[in-house]
C-alpha cells in the first residue's frame, strides 16, 4: 500500500465517522427535549458535519481521480464506508444519544490533539480547528451524563441502559491495520494504542461521577475497518444518497 492510498483510506475513516455521526445527530433537530438543548445538539451536529466536509474534500484531493467530496459522500456503497460502528447506531432515547456522543467526544479530543501534531499539514490543520469544538462538545455531553446518572431514577436507568447497549462498540475505535502501520512510519497517523488507556481513564472518571457501572460481560463488536457494518448503515445511506443518485448528472 502506498502512502497516498493509505492516506486516502485513513481520511475516509475519519470523514465517514463524522458524516454518519452528523447524519444521526441531525435526526434530533426540531425534536429535542427542550429548545435550548435542541439548539445545542444541532450545533454539535453542524460542527461535526463541517469536519466531515473538510475531511471529504481532502480525501477527494488525496485520491486525485476526479471524484469530488459530494461524489464520495453520495456515490459510495455500504461496503465502501469506513465509519466506526458506534456512530451508525440508532439515536435511541436522549440518554443513548448523549452517551454515544460522550464516548466519541472523549475519543475525538485525544485523537485530534494527537493528529494536530501530524506531519500531514492538512490533517493537522483540520485537527487543530476541531479541538476547540470538541472541547465544548465534551463539556456538554459529560455534564449531561452526570445529570442523567445523578438525576432521577428514570434518567439513571436510561443512561445505564445506554452504556450497556453501546459499550460493545468501543474497542473498535482503537483498532489499527495496515493503513495505520504505513502512516505511523511517516508520522502522519495517530498511534491509537497510546491513547486507549488515557481514554479509558477519562471515561471511567465520568462514569464514576455519574454513578454508572460498566457492563460486566461484553463481547466487543468489530468490522468497520473492513467496511463491514451493522444493518443500520444501509438505511442511513439509502436516505442520505437517494436524491443525487436519482439525478446523477444534476448539480445542487
Amino acid at each position: 500500500m502506498t502512502t497516498q492510498e493509505a492516506l486516502f483510506k485513513y481520511t475516509l475513516r475519519l470523514s465517514d465517522t463524522s458524516l454518519i455521526l452528523a447524519q444521526r445527530l441531525s435526526e434530533w433537530t426540531s425534536k429535542g427535549p427542550f429548545l435550548e438543548e435542541d439548539l445545542a445538539l444541532t450545533n454539535i451536529a453542524l460542527d461535526i458535519l463541517g469536519q466531515a466536509n473538510s475531511l471529504l474534500e481532502y480525501a477527494a484531493k488525496t485520491e486525485s481521480k476526479g471524484r469530488s467530496s459530494d461524489d464520495l459522500a453520495f456515490f459510495r456503497n455500504e461496503r465502501e464506508f469506513y465509519n466506526t460502528l458506534l456512530v451508525e447506531q440508532p439515536n435511541g432515547d436522549y440518554a443513548q444519544t448523549i452517551l454515544r456522543q460522550c464516548l466519541i467526544d472523549n475519543f475525538d479530543l485525544l485523537f485530534y490533539q494527537e493528529l494536530a501534531k501530524s506531519k500531514d499539514e492538512t490533517l493537522a490543520a483540520i485537527a487543530a480547528k476541531s479541538i476547540k469544538e470538541i472541547t465544548y462538545h465534551l463539556r456538554h455531553t459529560s455534564s449531561w451524563v452526570d445529570r442523567f446518572g445523578n438525576g432521577t431514577e428514570e434518567s439513571h436507568t436510561r443512561i445505564q441502559n445506554a452504556l450497556n447497549e453501546l459499550w460493545r462498540f468501543t474497542d473498535e475505535l482503537f483498532e489499527m491495520n495496515e493503513i495505520d502501520e504505513v502512516l505511523l512510519k511517516d508520522k502522519i497517523a495517530v498511534d491509537l494504542k497510546t491513547i486507549k488507556p488515557i481514554w479509558k481513564k477519562q471515561v471511567d472518571a465520568i462514569l464514576e461521577k455519574a454513578s454508572l457501572k460498566l457492563p460486566e460481560t461484553v463481547f466487543m463488536q468489530t468490522g468497520s475497518r473492513n467496511a463491514k457494518h451493522t444493518e443500520h448503515l444501509g438505511y442511513i445511506l439509502a436516505e442520505m444518497q437517494y436524491l443525487p443518485r436519482m439525478h446523477p448528472t444534476a448539480k445542487w
Partner: peptide, 8 residues
C-alpha cells in the same frame, strides 16, 4: 419524550 430529560 423530553419530559424525563427536563425532570432529570
Amino acid at each position: 419524550d423530553g419530559a424525563w430529560v427536563r425532570e432529570a
